[in-house]
Design a protein around this nucleic acid. Structure first.
Lengths: 226, 226
DNA sequence: TCATTCCATATTGTTGACAATTCTGCAATC
DNA sequence: GATTGCAGAATTGTCAACAATATGGAATGA
């Protein structure tokens, strides 16, 4: 949590908030007050502001001038959008990877899936959330394309928020088994199978969301009427 | 340039730098010193830092801790990546728009193309650059998808930088004629034609870049050797 | 002559205080 | 009883000074 100097870095603050949102401990609409957060993390407000700006970039919080930062409240349309774009972008990712993947990358992917299995077996929610998003991020990183990676970073962050808001079931079925299948299809350069599995996987994840109604987990009247 | 109080907003600083990069007046590798910029815009360093953070998010500058902010130097691979992703994302955009577009949106698109024609006729470089990127951005905005819009915003910003670095010709052939054709294909709901025209248009833009060699427009020895 | 060390300078990073804005509770008014 | 106006409190926005770090060149020694 702290580095050599006992201070918390911006990245650590961002990750902490990100996880709190993904774990539903921070609900959409809640205001993230700077001074309050500065006290919690024991850093100056400037660093908190920097973290909030990053979280805004990632679409997790919404900053209103002179009002403050609030946990984002994605609409059903936005949720569908994110999955729509994910389908196309992740298809690109898989197609690229099927053109050939190094031994080292294969190893990294398999090891990641192994970690996911362990987290699932031990039922450690924090790890499950981090690793299941991390898998898709790792795929993008493996393509070697900085831009694909950056795009997926955005998509995964927003997906976490959407999952937190609209998830129906309590279990995370974006599980290691489907991930493992995708990896194996990629290492055998089977483009058709890999893209089909990825498409199916994303449909599966989306199907576990209830995207029929607007969920309002907050009690902020102002936001509800805006 | 200035608001009521005579101060320059963060957004204005970002746009100014963005344009300077697109117009090749700020070259890749050049360091953007905070104090220097604060003096130029007559604001405090804090505001400059905020603007630099935004520019980093857009991929236009690279911030190295304890070293400073430098105008990004996209590699040939990164350049190809951006156009690769643009082809898929803009295809999505066009497909969506072909499903139906309102009268008001049609009007906005046609008016935008008209503005582009005027800028081209009058040969106002600043307007040409802003409007030709703005066209693609307007298409994304018209889909109504916040995420598609945000993604295109990123892509256009990076494309501007890439064009500035790797452009061969002096003329901007991302001209209004091809844009006009795309708009007309969209308003007639001709998906095949619209996607074909968009693909061709992007190929055209990319073809005017020289993506065979690493261009180093800067004179910063350290950066050149890094 | 070349490599290395050290110090002065320049630049970024951080902090706490102050200014501007917004929110909240209460009282006065219709 | 509901609404408006106002003052105090809470919160965000801005700034300028200070601390930490990196840079570049001179001095030193092989």
């Amino acid at each position: 949590m702290t580095d050599q100097n006992g201070a918390v870095s911006v990245e650590q603050i961002v990750e902490k908030v990100w996880l709190s949102i993904a774990e539903r401990r921070l609900r959409p609409g809640v205001q993230l007050k700077e001074e309050q957060m500065a006290a919690i993390f024991n850093v100056s407000r400037a660093r908190i502001r920097q973290a909030l700006a990053t979280l805004q970039r990632d679409g997790l919080v919404m900053i209103i001038p002179n009002r403050g930062a609030f946990v984002s409240k994605p609409s059903v349309e936005e949720a569908r959008d994110v999955f729509f774009v994910r389908r196309t972008v992740e298809r690109c990712v898989v197609e690229r990877l099927c053109k050939g993947i190094s031994k080292a990358d294969t190893k990294r992917l398999r090891e990641h899936v192994a970690k996911e299995r362990i987290a699932n077996a031990d039922d450690i929610t924090t790890d499950i959330i981090k690793l299941s998003g991390g898998f898709h991020l790792l795929l993008a990183e493996t393509t070697g394309s900085d831009f694909l990676f950056a795009t997926m970073r955005d998509l995964i962050a927003r997906s976490s928020l959407i999952t937190a808001v609209y998830r129906n079931t309590n279990r995370f079925n974006c599980g290691p088994d489907e991930h493992a299948e995708i990896v194996e299809a990629i290492v055998t350069n089977d483009v058709d199978k890999a893209t089909r599995l990825m498409a199916h996987h994303l449909e599966h994840v989306e199907s576990e969301l209830d995207l029929t109604e607007i969920r309002d987990l907050s009690h902020d009247l102002r936001a509800a009427l805006a």
